[in-house]
Design a protein around this nucleic acid. Structure first.
Lengths: 213, 213
DNA sequence: GGCATAGTGGCACATTGTGCCAGAGTGACA
DNA sequence: TGTCACTCTGGCACAATGTGCCACTATGCC
């Protein structure tokens, strides 16, 4: 993608942020988010409380980077898509790409995401973070989708496509995270997300099947 | 629907809750959520701060009842649907019903919802509440949808249908709330929500329309 | 009327999150 | 190498959030 003109300071900031995020994730998963104080996260991450709040605006926010890393990659891929390519095809392609880790770092990132998501099934505070991340992602997705939509598409359709795409990814991740067994199987995750997205774009096929009691 | 065996105490609790909610909504819309203290809401609503926190677990939560009232009605209607009726038809019917106010109280409730939603477009804290309400609604919708789904439907499809329904309603409300002009036109709101839902269930029709630059 | 129960208010307190200022590290330039 | 500007960091004070605890009051039931 882009080069790394990261100065020493920039690199140390990235490291500090990631260190705080993973420390927070460990503690939250261990004891639940509200049984952990900001002071404890800061101490274990090796920074002062005041510094913690310079990196993150709330205590819960500390784990957000672990959840947004995939979404950020996805938005970048969509934004870079060829406007001549069909939007739906581009979305399928990018969904598949972002759920298929290619480097060791990407795999580790995915593991952290799913692990945290797994912990959040029994922690309301973490669910809030996840929901916020997804809402932000949907808004972000709208702005990168707009330039590659067919010319005549109206605002409502743009919103719907962004919602469908974000929901497909979200639901696939949630479903995988809730099951212990499937939590570490990226292939299943990718195919599930694609299946979800295709059901949205091809119509949820329930019209001809009333329940007969 | 159901009768009102509300005792005096129960009625006063309802009144107090609504009074707090509307007081909070007024203040939040006026000055933004974080420029308002819990103490001020409590004072203007005529209760002690300690009592405020017995009704609501956080300051922002105070406005949630104004946003959930429609969703609650909707869930009740879906739960009461005939299992022999097609699910998609039932959803269209109930979406239309819940956005068509029949009494003066329902109309007032819808006004408060849209007004608050309008204010939340420029207030991050209120957006969080709205997102949380929608997530909760989606989960709730799953459990009331499950009994009226076709027998063979799998868990993923259930999740997708709930997400599609909740998203259709959410997006229609957001789109209406963001425009000053359409904010007070329930008919437009209902038709927009139906249109959104039908696009989900009939497939987002973008397959044959790549953008030609 | 009198009693059990449940809602209310006041108080103390841990925790959150921010403004402010002082110290320490980095990078540029002479 | 020295020094200067700039940014990151840490400590402190402080307003505000949210909770546990206890006493007080009103409702509902006999």
């Amino acid at each position: 993608m882009d080069a790394e003109p990261l100065s020493l300071t920039e690199r140390r900031k990235r490291d500090t942020q990631l260190e705080i995020a993973r420390t927070a994730a460990r503690l939250f998963a261990d004891r639940g988010a509200d049984a952990v104080t900001a002071e404890e996260i800061a101490r274990q991450a090796g920074v002062a409380v005041r510094t913690f709040y310079r990196y993150f605006s709330t205590k819960e926010d500390a784990v957000a980077p672990l959840l947004t890393v995939g979404a950020d990659q996805w938005h970048a891929l969509v934004a870079a898509a060829d406007p001549a390519e069909n939007v739906v095809i581009a979305l399928e392609r990018t969904i598949s790409a972002v759920l298929t880790p290619r480097t060791e770092d990407e795999l580790e990132g995915l593991r952290w995401t799913l692990g945290l998501l797994h912990a959040s099934t029994s922690d309301v505070a973490l669910q809030h973070v996840w929901h916020r991340v997804n809402s932000d992602s949907e808004v972000q997705l709208r702005s990168v989708l707009a330039p590659i939509m067919p010319r005549e598409t109206d605002s409502l359709t743009l919103r719907l496509l962004a919602a469908a795409s974000a929901s497909a990814l979200r639901i696939a991740l949630e479903a995988s995270a809730e099951s212990d067994r499937e939590m570490h199987d990226p292939d299943l995750l990718a195919s599930r997300a694609l299946s979800a997205f295709r059901q949205f774009t091809s119509g949820l096929d329930l019209a001809a099947n009333p329940r007969t009691n």
